[in-house]
Simulated assay, not measured.
Amino acid sequence: METSKLRILILFIAGSFSLINCQNKKMEQKYSWLGTVSAPQEYPMEVYKGAIIADDFTYGFDAIWGTQNTGWGNEGGTMSVETQQMDIPTTLEFTWYSLVEKTFYTGKWNLDHEKIKELFEKGFIDQDNGKKATYTNFIVGLAPKGRVVLWINGPGNQKEVGVFQAHDTIITQEKAYENAKYMLKEGFADRMVKDPSYETFKPEIRAKIEKEGYPAPDIYDVYRERYNWKPSVILPEGSEWIDFGLTSYNGEQENLFGETLTADTYKKRAVPKFCGFYWRDQNKNRYAVWVDSFDEKEIFDLFQKLGKEKNIAFTIKVNADNTGAALSLKSEKEELPITKAKIRLSRKIE
């Protein structure tokens, strides 16, 4: 008799825990998100199939996405869905064809649920309206040698949330599903990569490849290396620094303004690829400065020379009428000029 009561009690307790867990899961905030694909401009990838999977929703990819090479970390297109609010995704799976390598890659990975949840919950302040916003897109980055990076994206903000390794696989004409059989046609990859009439590459990218060859496949790991740095803008006396937006080589983006700008301090960040900001002079005239690009070898050499242990101020010194700016990396004891960056400066903005 006592044994039966004990068994009933254990079942009751176990059932209670299951109910609590179920309720907690139901109570977890849902978010509105979509997915897209990114690949380097020099390494076009052909989507075969894939999915970003949540408990209540699957965002799928297949051959209709076609060739992707918008640039590392850059968004491609998105497909609209009827679902408005989804659970936080738990799984990523993807299969694709690397045209340059003539290799299929595939893999399935668990996502860091807590990291993604924290980013969704924290969100960011939208500079345009001053209201809290959050992320709306996942970007699946496909790099050579089966490297996969997953970013989460919102206006002006992009964070890396996962890095994975796929393995090569063999898909034959007989095995491929109907809409993907074109990838297996003889000569398909060569035509896409070598024939200019297919416009797989922008003319300047094709010219760069012909001159320098393809980037080393491990460069996409180098891009992820972080240094302890912050932006530092030096303006004419009486001026006000308004904001600072940056995109890094690793695909991440930040938008600093207001408290996030004034409170910003040294932080582990990847090497900047693009940045820009607005400022006002003492007469409240507004100006803009954009560093459209760096010389990749120079900027990486300079960061590597100062190293990952030092605090580095990425310094932009602007002259009085916004007609020139000097760039440098500055540690406590050393200042290294950046001489090959392409800089644009605005006239007075009305």
Rank of each mutant, 00 (worst) to 15 (best):
P272S: 05
G130I: 12
P215Q: 00
S232G: 02
S248R: 01
K132E: 05
Y48W: 12
T265E: 01
K211G: 05
G77Q: 03
L345G: 04
K181I: 04
V149Q: 08
Y214I: 07
V163C: 03
V233L: 01
A39S: 13
A216V: 14
A143E: 02
I171G: 10
K208Y: 13
K284Y: 06
S293H: 08
G71Y: 08
L119H: 07
F274C: 04
M183P: 11
I13H: 11
G307N: 12
K230L: 04
F124N: 01
K230I: 08
N129W: 11
T169N: 05
K310G: 00
T95H: 02
C275D: 03
D218W: 09
D112T: 09
W65Q: 12
L306E: 10
Q41A: 02
I13S: 09
Q29S: 09
Y182S: 09
I171R: 05
Q84T: 14
R206S: 04
K202I: 00
E212M: 08
K273P: 01
T3L: 13
L306Q: 15
I234Y: 06
P217M: 00
N311A: 07
L6F: 11
E82L: 01
K115D: 11
V81W: 11
A176E: 04
E160L: 12
M45T: 07
W72E: 08
Y135V: 10
K5Y: 02
S331K: 06
L119Y: 05
A325E: 15
L19G: 09
E199V: 12
A133L: 00
F120M: 15
